[in-house]
């Protein structure tokens, strides 16, 4: 694994949806080998930023590099990315097995697969059923399995634990830490600040389409004077709005 020094390099990223300025000039340099939490209030631009990293959303302006590759329509850099959306949506008629086969097929033959989560979540019996019959939580688990399957260099996770029960959620967090241990980088958008506090090394705080803070969790706390992430972020928000 030849990880670049930073996994995301962004400068001057803007994006408008109609009359709505969603990203108003994002400058970022996300270091590799860390778990970076992406926080901010609703409509701050978290999901749009994540979709920009994946090439799903085309920024209006700015320069964006992911894993050292410019995001310009060439899809190959996504071989090294695992993504878990906020609410996993799959083609309804496919079964879990078909879904996994399809993703394997698209990725080519990876050197090794990491199907640990499949066992952890006990998903095997669910895989023969069409996706449309699965519960929201089960779909979320399936989505996590897909994201981790190919040992990606960069994991982009948008509210990954939102639909998970506490047991699954705990297992997932352990998986995050283990993944960092093997040298991968993780970008984790979440509203659950307590959870972030447990796993995140760095925090990016996004407000009204701009990066208001980016740095280690410890620095955020010393900056705001709060020992809990939740209070620290709340303090940032108050500053930002005032």
């Amino acid at each position: 694994m030849s990880a670049p020094r930073s996994v995301v390099e962004a400068s001057g990223i803007t994006k408008r949806f109609g009359k709505l300025d969603v990203l108003r000039g994002i400058d970022l340099s996300v270091p590799s080998g860390r778990i970076t939490g992406l926080v901010g209030p609703n409509a701050a631009g978290k999901t749009t930023l994540i979709k920009s990293l994946l090439g799903l959303v085309r920024p209006d302006a700015g320069r964006l590099e992911v894993l050292g590759q410019p995001v310009n329509g060439d899809e190959r850099y996504r071989h090294a990315i695992g993504y878990m959306p906020q609410a996993a949506r799959f083609p309804e008629n496919l079964t879990g097995v078909e879904l996994l086969d399809m993703v394997r097929d698209l990725r080519g033959t990876p050197p090794s697969e990491d199907s640990e989560l499949l066992d952890t979540f006990g998903l095997a019996p669910e895989l023969a059923k069409p996706v449309r019959t699965l519960s929201g939580g089960t779909r979320q688990k399936l989505s996590a399995v897909v994201a981790f399957l190919f040992q990606p260099d960069l994991l982009i996770l948008d509210e990954p634990t939102a639909g998970l029960d506490p047991v699954a959620s705990g297992a997932f967090k352990e998986k995050l830490l283990a993944t960092r241990e093997r040298g991968a980088s993780i970008l984790l958008a979440s509203h659950t600040l307590a959870e972030l506090e447990e796993v995140a090394d760095d925090i990016i705080f996004l407000l009204e389409g701009r990066v208001r803070f980016h740095g280690p969790v410890a620095r955020l706390m010393s900056l705001t004077g709060f020992a809990r992430l939740e209070k620290a972020v709340a303090a940032l928000m108050r500053q930002g709005i005032s």
Binding site: L54, G73, R78
Partner: peptide, 9 residues
């Protein structure tokens, strides 16, 4: 959406 998050142009 699923496929575009994979390495598919």
């Amino acid at each position: 959406e699923l496929l575009l998050t994979q390495p598919v142009g």
